[in-house]
């Protein structure tokens, strides 16, 4: 709510039941005074938005799980290899590339490898490894075999 002509608004709680405009107006004046130190009783007031929150119980849904894989990524999840420079001073080395959306639960990937998806790339350095869990998360072990 706000006085007509203002830009910013004040959000006020309203109790369940019928809303009395005059009581709401008084509550706004009082809220404005409490928040800003000043009120303008008698000035026209407008309601800019109404917010309702409702709570009800819904049945619990089973989490979606990835189909189990063979333990190594399918050919469908493999993209062409590419060269990646890991250490300054050393040459670039061939690196396997996987598509994350095509990985399945239980797939295990050893570094060096790049796991690509639309919004990011997960890079496994040599010695790192990743396991895909049932929810699709990548569980990384850094330097497991370094």
């Amino acid at each position: 709510m706000r006085y007509v002509g203002q830009e910013h608004v004040l959000t006020l709680p309203v109790e369940d039941g019928r809303i009395e405009p005059s009581a709401l107006g008084l509550a706004f004046d009082e809220g404005h005074r409490a928040r800003f130190g000043h009120a303008a009783p008698g000035q026209p007031i407008e309601i800019v938005s109404l917010r309702v929150s409702a709570v009800r119980a819904i049945p619990r849904r089973a989490p979606e799980l990835l189909a189990p894989g063979s333990g190594t990524p399918d050919a469908a999840a493999q993209r062409p290899e590419r060269l990646v420079l890991f250490e300054i001073g050393e040459g670039p080395r061939p690196c396997a590339v996987y598509e994350r959306a095509a990985l399945r639960a239980g797939d295990r990937i050893e570094g060096p490898a790049a796991i690509e998806e639309e919004t990011t790339t997960t890079l496994l350095r040599p010695g790192d490894s990743a396991v895909v869990d049932g929810s699709g998360a990548l569980l990384l072990e850094i330097g497991a075999s370094r």
Partner: peptide, 9 residues
Amino acid sequence: NLMRTAYNQ
């Protein structure tokens, strides 16, 4: 508080 209660852009 001045910005939040002002009428003029």
